[in-house]
């Protein structure tokens, strides 16, 4: 594995204008200056609550959305504003898996046609023919290749998600953006799909950007984790750093809010008050300050930079990071 990143994102920003009639009345700062790298074969988990911009980020990475500013470099090439023709060779290496297994498959197409779509769109004729390749893919994701001619409505949610995964794999991509791939599935099915994705990653050496709101799922899938809040990354680091030595108060709050089966009864949790503010009018300075128990005057005036600690790979955007205290001994305030 080289140290050269497969995906390099710098200052990535997406602002949606809010219109009333013809006049723009405001800006939704959905994503506001992201920096991160993904190395080949590595998984970066993007985690955050609703409105943090994680889904918008995923759509920009596969260029379903046009970034407002910043840059996306894939495999050394700048694809930030590349047109459809320029993107064509890259499409094969950059694919997406969607959240909703019901909306993500064309109900009028057979499974064979759905999985073959990326091949056909790109005019690729695999050796042995398209059908053989599709059946190989179906087998790879644990479906019966004989079901080539069936329609999506004949499959269960978990099976449909496998079909979506087979489609994403059809072009042999190097990087897959997985946008909440298991959150719409039943608990017992989630684990099947998580395991499938992990096996595929190991066998095919895929890199993933794994987007989820569930820190526990992210933990089982990602080597690196970026925690987002209101369009910003507040903390990024290796899995062990984030889960065992989180420095940002928000990361700590998120971790302690997750109900864990291994702990019965109300645990000593950090309780955040209120909801996530609207990205239409984010708080000044540190965006988390309105819900942070450590906030002081400087937090309202000065935006903390995402700075690495101890020269390591863990970076935290906080004026008062928790450097010493390990998690789960925290006294909630």
């Amino acid at each position: 594995m080289t140290d050269e990143p497969l995906l390099r994102v710098r200052g990535l920003t997406k602002h949606f204008p809010v219109r009333q009639g013809l006049r723009a009345t405001g800006l939704v700062r959905a994503v506001d200056g992201l920096d991160f790298d993904v190395r080949p074969g590595e998984t970066l988990g993007l985690v955050g609550e609703s409105g943090c911009g994680k889904t918008t980020t995923g759509r920009m990475l596969v260029r379903l959305l046009e970034p407002t500013s910043g840059s996306i470099e894939f495999d050394g090439r700048d694809i930030t504003h590349a047109g459809r023709r320029e993107l064509r060779p890259l499409r094969q290496e950059l694919q997406i898996i969607f959240q909703d297994p019901y909306a993500s498959l064309n109900p009028r197409h057979t499974v064979g046609r759905i999985v073959a779509m990326p091949l056909q769109v790109n005019g690729i004729k695999p050796p042995g023919g398209i059908k053989a390749r599709v059946q190989e893919l179906l087998e790879l994701v644990g479906l019966n290749p004989e079901h080539y001619n069936r329609y999506p409505h004949e499959f269960s949610g978990g099976q449909r998600q496998r079909i979506g995964i087979a489609r994403a794999l059809a072009l042999r991509p190097k990087l897959i953006v997985a946008d909440e791939p298991v959150s719409a599935l039943d608990v017992s099915i989630q684990a099947q799909v998580v395991n499938l994705l992990r096996n595929l990653q190991r066998e095919l050496g895929l890199a993933f950007v794994f987007i989820a709101h569930d820190l526990a799922v992210i933990r089982h899938f990602s080597q690196r984790v970026a925690v987002m809040y209101l369009g910003r990354i507040v903390e990024i680091g290796d899995r062990a750093d984030i889960y065992e030595r989180p420095q940002h108060p928000y990361t700590r709050a998120l971790l302690s809010a997750i109900p864990d089966v291994t702990q019965l009864g109300p645990a000593g949790r950090i309780r955040l008050t209120g909801d996530v503010p609207t990205p239409l009018d984010p708080p000044s300075g540190c965006r988390f300050r309105t819900r942070c128990w450590k906030a002081q005057d400087i937090c309202a005036t000065e935006e903390p930079a995402l700075v690495p600690r101890d020269g390591g790979r863990q970076a935290t955007a906080c004026h008062f990071p928790e450097v010493a205290a390990p998690i789960f001994e925290e006294v909630p305030s």
Binding site: D186, S188, R219
Partner: peptide
């Protein structure tokens, strides 16, 4: 055993229930 947890070995495979409801 199929629920991902915040504790224990993160690299171990989850143990899903096979099949569908």
């Amino acid at each position: 055993s199929s629920v991902p947890s915040l504790h224990g070995d993160a690299d171990a495979d989850l143990l899903p229930i096979p099949g569908n409801p």
